[in-house]
């Protein structure tokens, strides 16, 4: 697996007459963990889909490695965790995880990687349940396992832990950090949570609204591996405070 970075230039996206993204540039270095942080409706989900080559921007260009993003899709390099779990209702958790993997040609429908992925998100015990028998948080974790089981070079995650309680969320953050450390995947991660962004990221892209654009990039220079007790350190609070200022001030100015 060759890990590639993503580079997007001059991205603009409009739905009808609504301009959602305007003149946006972003770089995601190969193997890095990059976060999109911003208020609701600023276009994070839209940008994430564009970066993964599954949504074509109105203007602009997305390159993954040396090729247009579409080619990374064709090469099955993209793993996607959307904001909603979007599980197939008539398949069990295990079958859901296995389906995309087998379509992508990354192995047989039932092999160890499927169970490993479910184990990783703490759902080995629920593998045979159907989506309507899962809680919202469990369903979202199945969708994370589905992306992980694909073993993609690039992992795009849209508020994957949004539906989880604080404790599960912290432990999922640690799990994700260790998966990233072990596999060296390129990860683009969307979140509302400042703490989550600081904890996980190499770089945080702060997005502004109307139209969606990147108003600040902050590099998080905290040593890895990062542990949960980091959350109380002065270093961590420093970053959090600065990000919060970025998010709050421009919004008030805009209103």
């Amino acid at each position: 697996m060759t890990v590639s970075g993503i580079s997007a230039r001059g991205i603009g996206m409009a739905f009808g007459s609504t301009v959602v993204l305007d003149q946006l540039d972003i770089d995601v270095p190969a193997g890095s963990f990059v976060t999109l942080l911003g208020p609701s409706g600023c276009g994070k989900s839209t940008l994430l889909k564009i970066l993964g080559g599954i949504l074509t921007p109105t203007v602009g260009e997305v390159m993954i490695g040396d090729a247009p993003a579409r080619q990374a899709v064709a090469a099955k390099q993209i793993g996607l965790v959307l904001q909603r779990p979007a599980l197939v209702p008539w398949k069990t958790a295990r079958e859901n995880v296995a389906m995309l993997r087998s379509i992508a040609g990354k192995g047989k429908a039932r092999d160890q990687a499927v169970d490993d992925a479910l184990d990783l998100v703490g759902l080995a015990h629920a593998a045979d349940r159907y989506p309507h028998q899962l809680s919202g948080g469990m369903a979202q974790r199945v969708s994370i396992a589905r992306a992980l089981a694909m073993d993609p070079a690039i992992l795009l995650m849209d508020e994957p832990f949004g539906a989880l309680d604080a404790i599960t969320r912290d432990s999922m953050n640690e799990t994700l950090a260790s998966i990233w450390a072990a596999t060296g995947k390129t990860i683009v991660f969307v979140t509302h949570s400042i703490g989550e962004a600081v904890f996980l990221s190499d770089t945080v892209n702060v997005m502004g609204v109307n139209p969606g654009r990147i108003i600040d990039r902050m590099t998080i220079d905290i040593d890895r591996p990062r542990r949960a007790d980091l959350l109380d350190s002065a270093e961590f609070t420093g970053y959090s405070t600065r990000l919060r200022e970025q998010l709050v001030v421009p919004q008030q100015a805009g209103v």
Partner: peptide
């Protein structure tokens, strides 16, 4: 489900495959 279609597209599924595996059921 739109998102399910997006996911199928993200692994390069053909229209026939999406029809057979998702839409028909």
């Amino acid at each position: 489900d739109e998102d399910l279609l997006l996911l199928m597209n993200s692994v390069g599924s053909s229209k026939n495959e999406i029809l057979a595996r998702i839409q028909v059921p």
